[in-house]
């Protein structure tokens, strides 16, 4: 007994040493690059500090007051919400429909899957430039095609009424293939025996199968796709930076673009930090509530 105890002791301390070594880099970097910075943002948001300045004053909540009094901030928040409200149902709905169509029959499945997935892989900055030329008022493909039907030209990205929907269409274009792939994976995991049972129970028409088996079984996947799409839509930046710079007259300004310009163009660090905190809170709340609400409705056990 006495002989065993020191050995055990030794092994235990050895094990915790190994574990310590294994996690040490991650722990240090988590502190240095994630939690430290997150804390720093909160602190910055309470000061008037600017990058490069040697001194700063604590302002309390003055940055937040300025932020909430800023009409442009509210515009960008509303714009972001409008963008999300268009992109999320568009992406999820289109992704689901395409997934159902692709899985309905085997022919050309591989081709369709790859073709729809291509936008997901492509560099958004470059493709935004391409979209910009497609939406060009005179030489753009979109107006050329509309002209065929006698519809007058629109300057999509310069008209405050059309700029957000236009950006949203680009957002849907990039995201719906991703949603499709996730839905296809979900469809493949629906057991065939459920469709058999439905056929015997009398639910054998396409719509009945959809209602009785497919859609309910896609519940958990839909939750993932919704959360993912919503978070990504909230992070819209590339298209705005490349195509509109928030214009015309802030009609396409969004939260992340605001964050970028205030912090790095105007170098208003404190104000930018306050904006960041608000952005962070929104994204975290969004993710958590969505996960909670949807989880309750689609968890089957």
């Amino acid at each position: 007994m006495t002989a065993v105890a020191p050995g055990r002791q030794h092994r235990l301390s050895h094990a915790s040493l190994v574990a310590g070594l294994a996690v040490a880099p991650a722990v240090v970097l988590l502190a240095l690059l994630l939690f430290g910075p997150a804390l720093a943002v909160a602190v910055f948001s309470l000061t008037d500090w600017q990058i490069g300045a040697s001194s700063f004053r604590f302002l309390g909540l003055a940055n937040y007051q300025a932020l909430f009094a800023d009409r442009i901030f509210w515009t960008s928040l509303v714009n972001t919400v409008i963008y999300v409200v268009i992109v999320v149902p568009g992406t999820v709905g289109l992704g689901l429909v395409v997934a159902l169509l692709i899985e309905a029959q085997p022919s050309l499945r591989g081709f369709y899957r790859a073709a729809h997935f291509l936008p997901v892989m492509s560099t958004m900055a470059a493709m935004a430039i391409v979209w910009g030329t497609m939406l060009h008022p005179t030489i753009g493909l979109v107006n050329r095609m509309l002209a065929e039907f006698g519809i007058p030209a629109t300057n999509w990205l310069r008209d405050p009424r059309t700029v957000l929907p236009a950006l949203a269409v680009i957002g849907i274009w990039q995201g719906f293939g991703f949603a499709m792939v996730l839905f296809v994976a979900g469809l493949k995991s629906v057991p065939q025996s459920l469709y058999d049972a439905a056929a015997i129970d009398g639910a054998d028409r396409a719509l009945d199968r959809l209602r009785v088996v497919t859609l309910p079984m896609l519940g958990p996947v839909t939750m993932f796709v919704l959360i993912l799409t919503a978070t990504r839509a909230f992070e819209v930046f590339d298209t705005v930076r490349v195509l509109t710079q928030g214009g015309p007259n802030f009609a396409s300004d969004v939260l992340l673009y605001r964050l970028y310009t205030e912090s790095f163009d105007f170098l208003r660090t404190g104000y930018g930090a306050a904006l960041t905190v608000v952005y962070l809170v929104i994204v975290v709340l969004l993710t958590l509530t969505q996960a909670r609400v949807l989880d309750r409705r689609v968890h089957y056990t």
Partner: peptide, 29 residues
């Protein structure tokens, strides 16, 4: 592996998952 603080570390990782990277741009800069 079993070690002290494992659950705390994992919780920290989960919290970290929620933070969008753009939110850390200022301090990283």
């Amino acid at each position: 592996l079993r070690f002290r603080g494992r659950d705390t570390l994992f919780a920290a990782v989960l919290v970290g998952l929620l933070v969008p990277p753009q939110a850390l741009a200022i301090p990283h800069f």
